[in-house]
Design a protein around this nucleic acid. Structure first.
Lengths: 291, 291
DNA sequence: CGTGATCGATAAGCTGTGCCGATGGATCAG
DNA sequence: CTGATCCATCGGCACAGCTTATCGATCACG
C-alpha cells in the first residue's frame, strides 16, 4: 500500500496541515488548489485513512492526520539531513577512514592524525595496528584505506609515499667489547647472536636493512625472532644478543643496552604511506595531503 | 536541492545498491534498465554526488553511496511503519484518548478502562481528574475526548450516556438523635449544619440532589463547603454537621458516622459518560462501546 | 588478436499522470 | 436572498518518466 506514496504527498500533506486551508497551502506550494486536493485524496486512498475532515468552511486534522504529521515532518527532515550528509561524504568532508599502521610509526602517525583531524573534524578515523605485511594485505583486501608501513617493496597496485626516513643502528649489550665505541663495523657483530624482527612480517624491509650485514660477510642467522621492538631491546640489554633497529626505536634505551652507528654505507629505512593505486576517493586524497 | 528528490529515487537506489547491477535491479523493480539509469543519474545530480562508480563491467558504491544506503533503507522502513500506524490510528486501533473524570467515579472508570485496554491494547489513555464543571469545560474545549461526570444537565452540544445510578443518602454523626434509625425524613436534618460539595463544582447535580431537602422545607444553607467526599465524611464523623452523599462514597464509614436512607421520593444520582456530539472518531466510539 | 557476450549510457518516441483553468456545490455573513 | 468563501469535480494538456532500439566499452575465449 505504500509503494506509490511519494515525498510529494508528504510535502503537500504538511503544507495543508500547517495552513488548514487548501487555497493557502497550494499557494505556498506554488501549485493550484485542485492539484493539491487531488494529491491529498490520493494519499488518503493509499493509506486507507482520511487525514483531514473538510467541510466547505473548515479543514481539520483527523486523529490519523494528527498522529501522522510529526512523523512526516520528521521524515522529511531526516531525508534532508541524510542527503546533505551524503553530499559531505562525497566531497570528503565527512565519513570514515580506516588506517592500518605499524607500531614503530606511531609518532609520525599521531602527528598526521592531529593535523588531519583539524582539517576534517567530521571524519571518523578507525585505526588498525599490525605488521607491514598485514597492513599491506588489509589494504589490498579493502579492509583499510591507508596503510603506514616500513620499507614496503615496489608494488604496481599501490602508491607508496615516503613519510620519513631514518638510519638503522646497532644495539649491543653494555658489556659488549665494542660497546664503548661511537660506531661499529658490521663485521664486528658476526660472532654475536642476532635478535631480529621475523622476516615474514616485512620481507623487503628485512632484506634491505640486513643487506649491510650480508655485504660485510656476516651470515645473517637469526638466533631469536621477536615481533616487538621494545622486547628486542630488552633482550639485548639482558645480554641475549645484538640487534639492528630503526633509530627511532632506540631513543630511550634501558641501562644494559648501547646504541652504535653502523659504519659504511648507511641504510635508510623508509616509513611510507600506502594507498591503492585505483583509489581516488576524496577522503584518501585528503589524508595524503593532496587537497 | 532536496525538493525534487522523491521516494522513487530512494527505492531505485536501494535496488541498485542491493544488486550492484542495473539490469537485475531494473528487473526487480519491473521497469526497463534505461529508466533506472536515468533516475539514478537524476538522484546523483540532485544530491550533487556520485553514488555509484560504474564501468561497463561493474557497479560499485562510492563512499557517499555506502553512507547513504542504510539511511535510505531506514527512511523507507520508517515511512512504511508510519503509514501503517496512521492507518491503525484512523481505524481506532491505536492512538491516544484523553479522559476526564470525577473522583467519585474511579471505581466504574477503572472497570471500563480495564475492559477497554483489553480490546485496544495499543491505545494510550491519559487521565485528567477534576470536578464535573471542569470535566465538561475540558470536553467542550477539546482538551479531553471523554468525560465521566455526575448529573450533568442536558446539553445540546454533548451526548450523555448513563453509566450507573445510585441513591443519595444522609450521613450523620453517631451521636445524632436520628443516628439509630433506618431512614430519616429530610426535615429531620433541618436544624443541623449542612456540609456539602460546592454548588459551583456541579450546579445541576447540586440542585437535583438537594431538591428533596428543599421540598421538605429545609432552607439549604451550606454551613461548610468541601470539595472532597472523604473529608466531608470525616467532618460529619467529628460532629461538624450532617451531609447527603452518593451511596458509593458512604461504603466504608468511619466510626463516628452513620448512614441513613432518605425517606420520600428517592433521588437517583447518575454517573454519565459525556462526549462531544460532533465527535464521531472511532476511538471515542470504541470507548463508548459502540463498536 | 579478433569475436561474441555482457552491461551501462544514450537516443527517440510514447504514455500516464500531475497540473491547470473553469465550474459546481455547500456554507456562512449580512 | 445575495455575494463571498472554499473545497471538490471535470476536461484538457504538457511533461516527466517509461519504453524500445542502439551504441560503446570491457571482458572471456578460442
Amino acid at each position: 500500500m505504500d509503494q506509490r506514496v511519494e515525498l510529494r504527498h508528504l510535502r503537500y500533506f504538511l503544507a495543508v496541515a500547517d495552513e488548514l486551508h487548501f487555497g493557502r497551502a497550494a499557494e505556498r506550494l506554488h501549485i493550484a488548489q485542485p492539484a493539491l486536493s487531488q494529491q491529498i485524496r490520493q494519499l488518503e486512498k493509499l493509506i486507507g485513512v482520511e487525514l483531514f475532515t473538510r467541510t466547505s468552511r473548515s479543514v481539520r486534522l483527523t486523529d490519523a492526520g494528527t498522529a501522522f504529521r510529526p512523523r512526516a515532518r520528521d521524515l522529511l527532515g531526516r531525508l534532508a539531513a541524510d542527503l546533505h550528509e551524503a553530499g559531505r561524504v562525497g566531497r570528503g568532508e565527512a565519513g570514515r577512514l580506516d588506517i592500518g599502521y605499524i607500531s614503530s610509526a606511531v609518532v609520525i602517525l599521531s602527528e598526521r592524525l592531529r593535523a588531519f583531524a583539524r582539517r576534517r573534524p567530521d571524519v571518523h578515523v578507525k585505526l588498525h595496528d599490525g605488521f607491514t605485511v598485514d597492513v599491506l594485505a588489509s589494504l589490498e583486501h579493502g579492509t583499510i584505506d591507508v596503510g603506514i608501513v616500513r620499507d614496503a617493496g615496489e608494488r604496481d597496485d599501490m602508491d607508496l609515499l615516503p613519510l620519513a626516513s631514518e638510519r638503522f643502528v646497532a644495539v649491543v649489550p653494555a658489556d659488549h667489547p665494542v660497546a664503548g665505541r661511537e660506531r661499529v663495523e658490521a663485521g664486528d657483530l658476526a660472532a654475536d647472536p642476532l635478535i631480529l624482527f621475523p622476516r615474514a612480517y616485512g620481507p623487503h624491509a628485512f632484506d634491505v636493512n640486513t643487506a649491510p650485514l650480508r655485504e660485510a660477510g656476516v651470515d645473517v642467522q637469526v638466533a631469536q625472532e621477536c615481533s616487538n621492538w621494545h622486547t628486542i631491546i630488552m633482550f639485548v640489554a639482558t645480554g641475549l644478543g645484538v640487534t639492528i633497529a630503526p633509530y627511532s626505536v632506540t631513543n630511550r634505551l634501558p641501562d644494559g643496552a648501547r646504541r652504535l652507528e653502523l659504519a659504511g654505507r648507511p641504510t635508510e629505512s623508509h616509513i611510507q604511506m600506502a594507498t591503492r593505486r585505483s583509489d581516488d576517493r576524496p577522503l584518501v586524497e585528503a589524508f595524503l595531503g593532496r587537497r
